[in-house]
């Protein structure tokens, strides 16, 4: 609790110019590419469960087209996201478009987009940085207290801290930047286009 409080204090005392500074520093380090793909390991800690929910899968980020999030184990599922749509195997999900925008912006390191909805604070050196995002929207704040991104030249991990105490930590590995989409994925993005 004390750590959280100091963290919050830190966030609120940070001046915007400093935050901008950190952002531009991080942005300089990040590899800029249209396509990013890799594996993910997700660890969800729910208060009511005695053990974390572990899952793994692959992701593909395309700057214009959106994100394909494919969970492979333990339960295979597919999530397609772009700025306006959110598709699951169940069909289109009735989730505000902002979710998709944030999700895509986080994976793509699009800080400009994130700055619209979150207060940001962070720090680090050339080799490693971290960035904390606090939602501005009062309603969203009731659900998510903070998100922490960390990485070097790539985004390496993402942690979502929920107001209720649950946390989700996603780590990314085997990140690469091909110039073309892997075969078959074009069709998945096609489903997102209106």
């Amino acid at each position: 609790m004390i750590i959280l409080k100091t963290l919050l204090l830190l966030v609120f005392t940070i001046t915007p110019s400093y935050a901008d500074d950190v952002l531009s520093q991080i942005a300089v380090h990040l590899v800029k590419a249209d396509i990013t793909l890799g594996d993910f390991q997700q660890e969800k800690h729910l208060k009511v469960l005695r053990k974390p929910l572990l899952s793994t899968g692959t992701f593909i980020y395309h700057q214009q087209k959106g994100v394909i999030w494919q969970t492979l184990s333990p339960v295979p599922s597919l999530l397609l996201v772009n700025d306006t749509k959110l598709l699951t195997s169940e069909g289109e999900l009735a989730v505000p478009a902002a979710f998709g925008q944030v999700f895509k912006a986080m994976l793509g390191g699009d800080f400009k987009q994130l700055a619209e909805g979150f207060s940001m604070a962070g720090g680090g050196q050339k080799s490693a940085w971290h960035l904390e995002l606090i939602p501005n929207d009062a309603l969203l704040k009731k659900l998510i207290s903070a998100m922490v991104l960390a990485g070097d030249t790539e985004l390496r991990s993402l942690e979502i801290q929920e107001a209720g105490g649950n946390t989700t930590r996603i780590t990314f590995t085997h990140i690469s930047h091909p110039t073309l989409l892997p075969p078959g994925q074009e069709a998945n993005f096609e489903r997102l286009s209106p």
Binding site: Q42, K44, K47, L53, S55, W69, I144
Partner: peptide, 21 residues
Amino acid sequence: LSQNLAMLYSPLGQMQAAGLE
């Protein structure tokens, strides 16, 4: 039940997970 799991494992399942109990 597998739909439930997919929901829980989804990176967006915060709302649902919060009501799991």
